[in-house]
């Protein structure tokens, strides 16, 4: 139903903001691109966890001095946290119809992902750049 105050609006103005503005594709694409990146990175992470499981604290600190390990570790963590934020957002949008709650949960999930990512990345950088306490 067209409200009183809509009578002066143009058709374009009335149509705007109700449908696709073609920015939904960006997130859809980002989810796929991060998935593709995580195919090699995830396998590398499994291989790394198997190594890290047996080399202890000194071994792990040593392991994080290699530039290749630092870069792959940072990328894996950053892309994983971004990917899981995108995935959780889709799940929330599917199951929570009430708009304010939906926004609240998406916000909470985004905040948790961001916090987790920041904690992980800064910790890795600290050790990688020689700041590991002995």
């Amino acid at each position: 139903m067209v409200g009183k105050d809509d009578s002066f609006k143009t058709d374009l103005k009335r149509a705007r903001g109700h449908g696709s503005a073609h920015h939904g594709l960006g997130m859809w694409m980002a989810e796929r691109m991060t998935a593709v990146a995580l195919i090699p990175l995830g396998l590398w992470a499994v291989y790394s966890v198997l190594q890290l499981a047996v080399i202890g604290y000194d071994g792990a600190v040593d392991w994080l001095q290699s530039p290749v390990n630092i870069v792959l570790m940072l990328l894996t963590l950053a892309i994983s946290f971004y990917h899981m934020h995108l995935g959780m957002r889709v799940i929330i949008e599917d199951y929570i119809e009430h708009k304010p709650s939906r926004l609240l949960w998406i916000g909470l999930s985004a905040a948790a992902s961001l916090l987790g990512a920041a904690l992980a990345l800064i910790s890795i950088l600290k050790v990688a750049l020689g700041g590991a306490p002995n």
């Binding site: 946290f81 904690l119 910790s123 890795i124």
Partner: peptide, 20 residues
């Protein structure tokens, strides 16, 4: 996916512990 979401925080915790 949800399980791995939670698991990522175990990985973040590992990095935190290493830096501590």
């Amino acid at each position: 996916g949800v399980g791995l979401y939670l698991g990522a925080f175990i990985a973040a915790g590992w990095a935190w512990a290493l830096a501590s």
